[in-house]
């Protein structure tokens, strides 16, 4: 399971990577915004994308839209982990095809639950 973690703050990337490792996902890579992440996704056979929303350059919601528009990436499970909490934004993310939405600050248990739910649904 190869996972890409996208966040403009390195500490948040590190926290998410650590939590993923605790869940047994050790193959993770990092990007600091959508512009860096998109080519990595296009060339890298990732199985899962965890992304922040508010980032300089390309935002997470734009990245999500690009992923859904890309024939090779359109089925990639995407989990949004973000401080963005406006209802309109959550609805927009859902409409753009997000698979899970976690708002910061979050707990390890919430992250675990959402990831498990995404993979249950993907398998089922």
């Amino acid at each position: 399971m190869k996972i890409l973690v996208v966040d403009d703050f390195s500490t948040m990337r590190r926290i998410i990577k650590n939590l993923l490792r605790d869940l047994g996902f050790t193959n993770t890579q990092e990007a600091d915004d959508g512009n860096t992440a998109l080519p990595m996704l296009q060339n890298g056979s990732f199985d899962f994308l965890v992304t922040d929303w508010n980032m300089p350059g390309m935002t997470g919601i734009e990245l999500l839209k690009h992923v859904r528009e890309d024939d090779r990436l359109k089925d990639l499970p995407v989990l949004m982990v973000t401080a963005e909490a406006k209802r309109d934004q959550i609805v927009a993310a859902a409409q753009a095809g997000v698979n899970g939405y976690v708002i910061k600050p979050f707990t390890a248990a919430v992250l675990k639950e959402k990831i498990e739910k995404i993979f249950e649904r993907a398998e089922g």
């Binding site: 935002t59 963005e84 909490a85 406006k86 209802r87 309109d88 859902a94 708002i103 919430v110």
Partner: peptide
């Protein structure tokens, strides 16, 4: 600019258009 992102909500409890926590997000979804 909701598309760009507006950052953390400082008074989530007092704003109707803001999810107050993960449970709220889950209910909405």
């Amino acid at each position: 600019d909701l598309q760009q992102g507006v950052g953390p909500q400082l008074n989530a409890e007092n704003e109707e258009d803001v999810a107050t926590g993960q449970d709220d997000v889950d209910d909405l979804l």
